[in-house]
């Protein structure tokens, strides 16, 4: 190859590091990638750090501190193509549960001296703050999809990832539907493909790592779950996990929570 190699940068905000680890988990491709790309900023992997501009910026994590509000703007300005990687960057992550709670009480629950800690009352997606060129869903992301993004950008084409539901992947895998067969709660019908439909293949319901698929029929799924014996509170909790702040999941969990607030408190019951 001639000409300068594309410059790749990886940035972390509030997250668990799992999505950027996916890049190091490309064991068969990593050394080759190192030859095709200049990895100019990837703190988890290299001490060599250089400033922008960057051709590709992979952004992990959500915005939760005043400093990060500024830092994401700097990353955006320095980057040609900004890709969010994972549920934190794309939807705010599990830490967006704080958006539903009293922040001061959260701080006090963990720290004896909360005054030392600087954090925002909300955890929000990168796209709430800057323009995002491509989103990779998942908690964690799928490394094949990550490689697709990198290859596409190296080949100067737009990456493509599927947007159908996990449900369809179960049919393709030949996994027996656990909602139909066992009445188990499963978010597969409303969750975007990408994980490979692993949970139902391990005899458990999908818990929505990849966030809402295109046009999810959430109200219908909630009704089905409740008919199958779940309490409204359980249906709410099921949506309030790793993609709690994804708009469709959030709206449905709020709708159900309001519904539950109008009803008498249910008896505590055990999950099947």
């Amino acid at each position: 190859m001639s000409g300068p190699r594309p410059r790749l940068a990886v940035f972390k905000f509030a997250s668990c590091d799992g999505c950027q680890l996916s890049l190091l988990d490309c064991e068969d491709e990593l050394l080759a990638l190192g030859e095709r790309l200049d990895i100019v900023h990837f703190l988890e992997a290299t001490s060599r750090v250089s400033d922008g501009p960057y051709d590709i910026a992979l952004v992990e994590g959500s915005i939760t501190t005043p400093d990060d509000l500024t830092r994401i703007q700097e990353v955006r300005r320095a980057s040609k193509f900004l890709v969010t990687i994972g549920a934190c960057a794309t939807a705010g992550g599990i830490q967006a549960l704080r958006n539903f709670a009293d922040h001061a009480s959260f701080l006090a629950a963990v720290y004896a001296s909360p005054q030392y800690i600087h954090s925002l009352a909300t955890s929000t997606a990168i796209a709430d703050h800057v323009r995002v060129d491509f989103e990779l869903r998942g908690c964690p992301i799928n490394k094949t999809q990550l490689l697709e993004v990198i290859r596409a950008l190296l080949g100067d084409r737009r990456p493509t990832t599927p947007s159908h539901s996990v449900c369809l992947d179960c049919k393709r895998r030949g996994t027996v539907c656990i909602i139909v067969a066992h009445g188990a709660p499963c978010l597969g019908p409303v969750t975007q493909s990408g994980c490979g439909a692993i949970c139902p293949a391990y005899d458990r319901g999908c818990y929505g790592c990849f966030g809402p698929c295109v046009q999810p029929n959430l109200a219908s799924l909630s009704a089905q779950q409740i008919r199958n014996g779940a309490s409204i509170a359980e249906a709410v909790q099921g949506l309030r996990l790793f993609n709690v702040n994804a708009p469709e999941f959030r709206q449905e969990s709020d709708r159900l929570a309001n519904l539950a607030a109008d009803l008498p408190a249910p008896e505590p019951r055990q999950r099947p």
């Binding site: 509030a14 599990i94 830490q95 963990v110």
Partner: peptide, 19 residues
């Protein structure tokens, strides 16, 4: 350590043991 705090111990409260 400037890792942003994520408050796991706080939001675990009220969640089912199965989660």
């Amino acid at each position: 350590i400037f890792e942003p705090p994520r408050f796991f111990e706080a939001f675990l409260r009220g969640r089912s043991i199965h989660e």
